[in-house]
Design a protein around this nucleic acid. Structure first.
Lengths: 177, 177
DNA sequence: CGTATTGGTTCGGTGACCGAACCTATGGTG
DNA sequence: CACCATAGGTTCGGTCACCGAACCAATACG
């Protein structure tokens, strides 16, 4: 953590990891990045995060090699943040954490994660229940469940109502009517 | 999070989970609880956490059913905090997070986690590399690696220098010379 | 009786996080 | 050309979580 006080006394890779991704909002930014969110404004409206905090998190995550900032158009200059291998490697953690949250603190199923090749649900650590193999993140399909608000306010949530492969860039509706 | 602002806008079990265990220190307390730490003072010296923060975290974790406070002696009244099933269910998350931290941000191996029955290392999601089965937390043995300080200051770290099963209560040396 | 151990609570200071406002660069429109 | 919209930020004042240190309480030991 870039806090005034890190976990300096800890000899532990969990503590090291939390120094990087343990700050507020950070893991949610990574989650969105895995869902295909890439643009500053999309993170902003989807997360409801203060702008200054988002800017700080994007900078830290880029510096740590979890996201990569790249220019996708020259004029006007526009950058996007794309998740790297190192960020993709956080998927098992997020998967485990989400499963724990759902099993212990959520009543309805919000989203399903399935193996694109066969359609079967993922197991607890991201393996395909049918094939048995650990599914690469790019082959995971996110399908909305019954617990989701069917008509959310922000365009990113609306875009996420359609089944969607992870990592694939999110297409937000161009200024809906 | 019991912060002034939670992740209210998020319909996501990851966000729900982070509201519970996303505050600073919380996951490290759970980690220590899985390692067998049970007493207020042991958490305190091992984590280097401010007393007030530790008291708050223990209370929250108890309220959420992740730890259970119980009296282990009557006179003087002494309580210990024991990890529950719900807390044990966080092991895959911590395992994944620790592995990510080690692979990306740590040079030397700090600890090994092995299957008690056969001695083989655990895989990325806590399965035994030899048997293939997902190892119950109680059958995981933690073995210190070469990266650990061989003579740490606090008694809890010293007690953790010996190979040790997870969940088993930690025996701290009774006031070393 | 004084001291040590365990498990806290209280308190003042600092800094992370908060929302809102402002800034810059470009593009589109009438 | 004036005006507004969009994308991607920075700045600012206020609040609240976190920080370390001090203090408190109950009991045991000598």
């Amino acid at each position: 953590m870039a806090l005034g006080k890190d976990y300096a006394t800890q000899e532990c890779s969990i503590a090291r990891a939390l120094e990087i991704v343990g700050e507020r909002w950070t893991l949610l930014v990574v989650r969105d990045a895995l869902y295909g969110v890439r643009r500053y404004n999309d993170f902003l409206v989807h997360l409801g995060i203060p702008r200054a905090v988002l800017a700080a998190r994007l900078q830290t995550l880029t510096a740590e090699g979890i996201l990569e900032k790249r220019r996708y158009q020259q004029s006007p200059p526009r950058d996007e943040y794309v998740v790297t291998e190192r960020g993709i490697a956080l998927w098992p953690t997020l998967r485990a954490l989400g499963l724990w949250g759902r099993e212990h603190f959520t009543e309805t199923q919000l989203r399903y994660f399935r193996h694109a090749d066969c359609g079967a649900d993922l197991g607890p650590y991201g393996e395909c229940r049918a094939c048995g193999v650990v599914v690469p993140v790019a082959d995971v399909v996110m399908v909305p469940g019954p617990g989701l608000d069917p008509d959310p306010a922000d365009p990113v949530s609306r875009a996420l109502l359609k089944p969607k492969r992870l990592l694939e860039p999110l297409e937000t509706e161009p200024a809906t009517a």
